[in-house]
């Protein structure tokens, strides 16, 4: 397993939005999907997941409905709303700008100053 990184504050919501944008998921599924798409590099604390899911639902970025999971249990599934899709786009662009700026700053060598 590759080295696991701590999530930066404020990034969990973005990752959840990304995970459910790929298809509807139940809570545990969101956890697994984030691990999967980060190549196992990011692991979400289970205690932080549900408050984040409920917050996003409360804010109207994701919506939920009850369905049946693969083991025939009743499960609550989350999907992205159109407001969530817009939010994901904005947050992704913001993250990319930030990452690029930090990357650029860290790559500077003394002779370039």
């Amino acid at each position: 397993m590759p080295d696991q990184a701590e999530l930066l504050p404020g990034t969990l919501d973005l990752l959840i939005l990304k995970a459910v944008s790929l298809g509807r998921l139940h809570g545990y599924g969101v956890l697994l999907r984030i691990e999967q798409i980060s190549g196992g590099a990011l692991q979400v604390k289970q205690g932080a997941l549900y408050p984040a899911l409920y917050r996003l639902e409360h804010q109207g970025f994701i919506a939920s409905e009850w369905g049946t999971s693969h083991n025939n249990r009743r499960a609550k599934y989350y999907r992205l709303t159109s407001a969530g899709r817009k939010r994901l786009g904005e947050q992704t662009a913001r993250w990319n700008r930030l990452a690029e700026a930090i990357g650029r700053s860290l790559a500077v060598r003394p002779q370039e100053i």
Partner: peptide, 11 residues
């Protein structure tokens, strides 16, 4: 909420 948590733990 309780049902959702139980489902999570079961999986």
């Amino acid at each position: 909420m309780a049902e959702e948590f139980r489902h999570h733990i079961a999986l």
